[in-house]
Amino acid sequence: MARALPDVVAIEEGVGLLRSQLLSISDAIARTRQEIADLRQEQETSRACDELQAVVQGTEDATNTILTASETVDALARGIVRRSGDNTNRADAEAIRAEMQTIFEACNFQDLTGQRISKVVRTIVLVEDRIGEMLRVWSASDAAPTAPNPRPDRRSGEAALLNGPVLPGEASVSQDTVDAMFP
């Protein structure tokens, strides 16, 4: 039986379609790489993690201060109950102790908040690591990797001026330096 020859035109069309699809995929990968690089730069992931860690630390510090003061007030109220001969004073001191217990219980929010924020930080770090790995893999395939184009700052008005509180350890201008500028 005679073998049918492949249709050359059909093969050329298939190759052309395959080439077109591969070029389309290549363009999509290049766009995705640029978008990821822009996202990475724009998001400042490590800064976000630092900010969240600062929230956890600030909350923990404030909670410890509240608990220390509450323990002192509770001890003073306990002393009043012990020493007071007046039933009204004793009742007031017992009421103070009951309110102190409410404060102790409410301060548990800090532990839960810290746990939740820590989960968010771990997720951010994981995403950052995965994106970094994708960029490394894609950059390794390029002969000459290009630096991402920096995105312009789109903030305006007060949002462009206000950057929030300084993280611990960051360089900042001290109040003494500011005071020295004004005679």
Rank of each mutant, 00 (worst) to 15 (best):
L5Y: 05
P6H: 05
P6M: 04
P6K: 05
P6L: 06
D7G: 04
D7N: 15
V8L: 13
V8G: 10
V8I: 12
V9S: 11
V9C: 00
V9Y: 04
V9M: 04
A10M: 03
A10G: 03
I11H: 04
I11N: 03
I11D: 08
I11V: 11
I11G: 01
E12I: 01
E12C: 04
E12Q: 09
E12K: 05
E12N: 09
E13V: 03
E13M: 05
E13H: 08
G14F: 02
G14R: 03
G14P: 01
V15N: 07
V15P: 00
V15K: 03
V15I: 11
G16K: 02
G16C: 01
L17E: 15
L17W: 09
L18R: 10
L18T: 14
R19V: 11
R19A: 15
R19L: 09
S20I: 01
Q21I: 01
Q21F: 02
Q21C: 03
L22S: 11
L22I: 09
L22Q: 12
L23C: 12
S24E: 15
S24P: 01
I25D: 15
S26E: 15
S26M: 07
S26Y: 08
D27H: 12
I29P: 00
A30C: 07
A30E: 14
A30V: 09
A30W: 03
A30Y: 05
R31L: 13
R31E: 15
R33M: 10
R33N: 10
R33L: 06
R33T: 15
R33C: 13
R33P: 03
R33G: 12
Q34M: 10
Q34N: 13
Q34T: 13
E35F: 09
E35K: 12
E35D: 15
I36Y: 05
A37H: 02
A37P: 01
A37S: 15
A37N: 03
D38Y: 04
L39I: 04
L39S: 13
L39D: 10
R40S: 15
R40M: 10
R40Y: 07
R40D: 14
Q41V: 06
Q41H: 09
Q41N: 13
Q41M: 12
E42A: 15
E42N: 12
E42P: 02
E42F: 12
E42K: 10
E42T: 08
Q43N: 08
E44Q: 13
E44N: 07
T45N: 07
T45F: 09
S46N: 05
S46K: 00
R47P: 00
R47S: 07
R47W: 04
R47L: 11
R47H: 06
A48S: 06
A48N: 05
A48C: 08
A48Y: 03
A48H: 07
C49Y: 00
C49V: 02
C49L: 02
D50M: 10
E51C: 12
L52D: 01
L52E: 02
L52Y: 02
A54E: 04
V55N: 08
V55D: 11
V55R: 06
V56G: 00
V56W: 01
Q57A: 14
Q57I: 07
Q57S: 13
G58A: 11
G58T: 06
T59Q: 10
T59A: 14
T59D: 11
T59E: 11
T59S: 14
E60G: 06
E60D: 14
E60P: 02
E60K: 10
E60W: 07
E60L: 08
